[in-house]
Structure formats: C-alpha cells, structure tokens
Design a protein around this nucleic acid. Structure first.
Lengths: 247, 247
DNA sequence: CGGCACATTGAAGCGGCTCAACATCAGTGG
DNA sequence: CCACTGATGTTGAGCCGCTTCAATGTGCCG
C-alpha cells in the first residue's frame, strides 16, 4: 500500500500510468509495495520468478547478467524515476532475465504484473505507450550490439562521453562522471585498466581534458569525427539492385 | 492489394493479425503491398523513413548494421513466415534502424504502419501479443549481448549449434547448417577463419563431428557442460544482504 | 576441365586482458 | 593534525585470442 503523497505524485505522473482511470489507478496503488534496500543489496536474481515490476523512487539500480564462471555484464543503470522489469510481465515464463543490485540505498515501488496486465487489456493507450517504450529499448540494445562489435574500447568511451553531454548541439561541453569509473568501464564492457588508458589516449590527442571526475570536451564534433558513429552508409552503397514492383 | 489465396492464408493465420475483426483485416489487406526482390537486393537502408512493416512470404532476409568504415554486424536472419520492422512503427521518428538484404529471391508483403496503429488502438489483445513478442526479442538481444561479451568465439559457436537442434531434449543430434558458414560466422560476430578454427577445435576434442555442412553432436550435454551457458548463479551468490520490508 | 566462390590452414600482428606495482584520495581513529 | 587503511584509479609488462594477410584446398556449375 502506498502511503506518502510524494510516492503518489511520482506514480501518477509516470507515463506508464498516466492513461489509467481513477479506479484502475487506485487498485494498482492499493496493491503497490514500497521497499527499501541498503547499498549493494541484491534486489533480484536472474531466474527468479517475476511477479512484480518496479519503479525506482530513489537511488540507482544496476542490472547485470552473470555467467557461470562469475564474469558479469552490466546491462543498464536505472536512475530514480524509471521503471525496470516491466517487459518481463508479457512473457509466458515470467522470470527475471537479469540480476538487480542497489548501487546506493534504494527505494523501490513494486507493482503487480497480474493486476497491470488486467488493466492493460482495457487500455490500448497505455499498451501503445509501452510498445513505444519497448521499441526504444530494443533500438538501444541494437545500438549497443553495434557499438560492442563494430567499435573498439576508445571509440566506445568517446561515444559514451558524448552521450553524457546534457546540452545537445553545443560546440563544446564539460561533464562530470555520475558513476565510478570502474562502473562506467563495466557498462562499456571494458576493464578499468583499459578505461584508464583510453582516457589517457584521448587526452594525449587533445580530444578531451580530464581532471579527476570532470571531463571537458573542447569540440564534440572533433570527437565524433574521429570515431564516426554508426551512421547510414553513403548514398552510393550497393546502389543498383532494385526491386521489381509486383509479384 | 493482396491477390492470391496463399497470401491471405499466410496473413490471416499470423498471430499479429489473428485478433482483428473481419473488417479491420480487410482494410489492412486492401492496403497491403506484395513485392519481389532478387537475391542480394537491398530492401531497406538504415535511416530510411519507415512507413511499412513486412511479412516475409518466401525467402530469407538479412538484417544488419553497417558502420562508417564499412564493417557490418548481422543482427538477425528473418525466415519465411516472420515479420520484421514491426517495432519501428511505435517510435516517434520512424526510420529503419537496420539495413535489410535479400539472401535469396524474396517475396515480402508490406503493411501500412499508420493503418496498423489505428487498428491497434482498438485492439488491446493484439497489443498484448505484440508486447509479448517484443519482450521475447528484447530478451534475445540480452542473450546475444551476454554471449558476445561473456563468451569466446568457440563457446558462441557451441551455443549456436545447440540452438539449431530441432529435437529439444534429445541426447544427441545431427544438424545441417541452413546458411553458408561465412554468414553464420557473421551472425556470431567472428571471422570465417576463426569460425573454421573453432569447428576444428570442437572436432579435435570429440565434441562434434563435421562432414561438410552436416554436423553431428554425440552428446549435447557434453557440449553445454564444456561451455556452461548463461545460467543463474549458484544459490550462494552474494547471499546475506536482505531488504528491509517497509520504508 | 576450368573457373569461381567458399572453406581451411598457417604465420604474423594487435587490441584488450591479466597480473602486479604504485598513486591518489576519503574516511577513521589515535 | 597526521598516520593508517581501504577503495579507487593509473601505469607498466607480458600474454592470449581474434584478426589479418596470404596460400592452399574443396566443391559446384558452366
């Protein structure tokens, strides 16, 4: 059960719930479970049965996969205000596909999958919103797949830095790393040592300037030009083969 | 406009359309565009505006990304009977995130995104089906992400071989590669040479037996044990940190 | 049979990893 | 206030896996 006004506001204004009727909302809220986790707590384990999805009220959550030999792959860092594990509820066998860990003290609000599904059946608007949301996620995974296979460590770092720039379209920028470098390294699937060397590499070449956690980029364009991002191929790519119009 | 009975049957029985009313279906069918492509034809380019999604009537379609320096990453191979680019219609800026190429002579049926969205607004059942579909896709991408970062080339190949086994749960199996080895290599993000060496590696160790395009696996379990798949960590993983129940 | 695409095998190179030492900084307690 | 400590970040050296380049082998269709 949700108690505080702060929680109500957070939920009500979240796009996931904004199309619901008053009644449906009340039902979901009545069933919602707030829960606190200390830093480093394991919130869920991959393979656990999933009966709820979560909204992060405060703190940051790390989603990751872990392989049999103990190596982990950081999939995503969920900041406050965002939901996670919402895609799981649409699968037949509902188990968490990833582990979740609290990076800092975290407060979550858990919603019942069963209840949510029941309301979705009568609310195409929210379904469409969710579809949009999941399309974006799918697209992001695609970007990451490409980045991982087509770009080397330094390029991945450069793209990450650019993605952290708040002011889109600015010429230059100064950013402060929101996470420990070792975590960013994990997010980029590189080792901390390699991360450090990549930073040094960019610094030596004058593309960035780094002082501790603050990194300034004299020219964002230069950084991007150097490591051309996954853009559409030139217009002359494999030109010539055209489709026939009708079967 | 759809003409042949064969096409109608294919469409009507596809889960994407199975919940639609007769009337909605007729509207979609009236607008559907069949189209043929010769082998190697470029069907769509990443960045192209997307106004339709496609059902593959016959042939195979390769979805891939291409980077500025020409390296390509094969994202997926779509066989006959499946749709692609259906996730794009839910995004604001509707452009194809990948290139598509006909691996063989291909016949596609294209459906209007606009029309489909309009019908989805009145059909939560299909929305939910689509959500389920996209959850699975999201999950698959996750698997691939993990496989790419956590497993080496030989392990990836082993997992691929196992995934190609038709008879789930059988002790041993014999499979015939449905695609040229160089394409499978690309799908696994390894070079053909490495693919070849990986096959040789498994053969030398008695885990598989390969004669040209036919590969037999004496014991599927052995193959999996060797390269323990991304399974849930042992029950003792980071035990101890428990959540407090209430805020 | 020739020709060509596909596949295999060898040798060398390179990028990122591992291991190890050292630096830096924050927090702690004397 | 400073010495101690542990976490985090940096730097160096060597190694390993995959790629690259190049040569050779194999199968298919003219």
């Amino acid at each position: 059960m949700i108690s505080t006004q702060e929680q109500r506001q957070l939920i009500i204004h979240h796009p996931m719930f904004s199309h619901f009727t008053e009644k449906a909302l009340e039902e979901l809220l009545a069933d919602a479970q707030p829960r606190d986790y200390p830093a480093q707590a394991l919130i869920q384990r991959q393979g656990d049965p999933a009966e709820r999805f979560y909204l992060v009220q405060s703190g940051k959550v790390k989603l990751f996969r872990i392989s049999a030999d103990g190596k982990e792959k950081v999939v995503e860092i969920i900041p406050a205000g965002r939901t996670f594990a919402e895609a799981v509820m649409f699968m037949q066998r509902s188990v968490f596909p990833v582990c979740a860990e609290a990076l800092e003290p975290v407060r979550l609000i858990g919603f019942s999958n069963r209840l949510m599904l029941r309301h979705l059946e009568q609310n195409p608007q929210t379904c469409l919103h969710l579809l949009g949301h999941m399309s974006v996620r799918l697209h992001q995974r695609l970007d990451e797949l490409e980045t991982l296979t087509l770009q080397n460590a330094t390029q991945r770092l450069a793209l990450y830095l650019v993605s952290q720039v708040r002011d889109r379209g600015a010429e230059s920028a100064e950013i402060e790393l929101a996470l420990p470098k070792s975590l960013i390294a994990a997010r980029l699937s590189i080792k901390p040592e390699t991360f450090s060397r990549a930073i040094a590499n960019l610094r030596d070449r004058g593309l960035i300037d780094s002082r501790a956690r603050v990194i300034s980029i004299p020219s964002i364009q230069n950084l991007l030009d150097e490591f051309a991002e996954g853009q559409t191929p030139g217009p002359d790519y494999k030109a010539g083969v055209i489709a026939t119009d009708k079967p």
